[in-house]
Write a protein that binds this DNA or RNA. Structure first.
Lengths: 225, 225
DNA sequence: GCCTAGACGGTACGCCGTACCGTCTAGGCT
DNA sequence: AGCCTAGACGGTACGGCGTACCGTCTAGGC
């Protein structure tokens, strides 16, 4: 019998129970029981009751770091924008669960803080790479932090608008995201902007199969048009 | 007998015990016992064990809001800078306790998150006022957040340098703070800068007594010279 | 067919944070 | 002066989180 993984069952059970009884009224034991696992297994999969609300955070963080690692000072602008875009894309694909999480975090202060802690990790990752592109000297540290914060703030701004339903479709969200990134670039001096004008660079796409193409097509069209 | 307040005794007991045994190895009951109060009273004074590490946070937050409330779009630049300066000044006056807190937060992740949560409140306060000066429309919200984050980031940058001992004296810290605020202003467009050149405005000082003058003299001199 | 490593469920415990209790004391009213 | 109410206090009890540790079971290599 093709059972889903224990981790996935725990996440589903948690979100269902949180929606039914609320976060505080749901105990870890309740979640474990509905997921069909022991309380011990819950804490093996997630460090705390709060962490189960953001099950893909670790994976997203490493994806961002990997994308930033491939960029150079010359390709910093597009690299930073794409790395932030990974997070947006993940939420867009997550769909309804992202909306449920948004409602949860809005009503539970502890989860709001947990989310901010995760966002802070994004900022640190961005700042670390940007600082490296700027030379890594103490004099450029503040500037790197300012840029990183601006990028993450811009991203969150668009993400929240989509979560609230102010941006109806995914492509509309992506359009707003590019506008926000442009505004961020106009307010802070991201390194490499003038050195590498976007028009001069050819676009290289790596697609595994047709589903990738379908999924990315709107973005590709937008970038080219 | 002129006993110090219970709140103050709790804070002193907590910092002493954290330095002796470490944060995790100190229980709330330990703190209450050394302070000569019941465990109940501890939680009446501080919402949690973490909050006792930042006893003046609430007061600082209201001081910032009060300072920002007196500013207008014309005086936004100096208002924002001074409001952030209130926090720096508080830490400088706090002296050794600020250093102890810094060592604590560096080694205890839970306290690091608590500190970030407090910083986030500062950002929100700044963003709210700046947003008002920008008109309070949805279009200016992102810009207000960007400016607020930049100001707070700049402040924290200087504060951390002082806490680490990289800035020896208080006046050196204040000088670095003004430099950081200038860099922030050069990266983001703080409203009111060009509309109200600093040279054209007279300086109005309100001093309660001579100690105020002594304390503020270095800043006054720097501003005028 | 055996044997070892790793994942599992179960149990016990320390401590946090909350709710609620009765007690005590300062300060206003008659 | 005597009373009386409001608020702060210490004490107790409890639910729940997160950790440590235990014995058990199962998959995979020799």
């Amino acid at each position: 019998m093709p059972e889903s993984s224990a981790r996935e069952r725990i996440v589903d059970a948690a979100f269902d129970l949180f929606a039914e009884r609320g976060y505080d009224a749901t105990t870890v034991e309740d979640i474990a029981a509905r997921a069909g696992v022991g309380r011990t297994t819950f804490f093996r999969q997630f460090r705390s009751k709060e962490h189960v609300v953001f099950p893909d955070h670790e994976q997203l963080l490493t994806a961002i770091a990997a994308r930033l690692a491939t960029a150079t000072p010359r390709t910093a602008v597009v690299g930073v924008s794409e790395a932030a875009g990974l997070v947006l894309q993940h939420y867009l694909e997550e769909g309804e669960r992202a909306r449920r999480r948004y409602r949860l975090t809005r009503s539970v202060p502890a989860l709001q803080e947990r989310e901010r802690a995760g966002i802070r990790q994004y900022e640190r990752t961005f700042a670390r790479h940007i600082h490296g592109w700027l030379g890594g000297t103490p004099e450029t540290l503040l500037r790197a932090e300012l840029i990183a914060n601006a990028v993450v703030t811009g991203h969150n701004h668009v993400l929240r608008a989509w979560l609230r339903g102010q941006l109806a479709t995914a492509s509309e969200a992506r359009r707003a995201f590019r506008a926000a990134m442009a505004e961020v670039e106009s307010h802070v001096d991201v390194p490499g902007r003038e050195a590498a004008p976007a028009e001069a660079l050819p676009a290289v796409l790596v697609l595994r199969d047709a589903s990738d193409l379908d999924r990315l097509l709107p973005q590709i069209r937008d970038l080219l048009g």
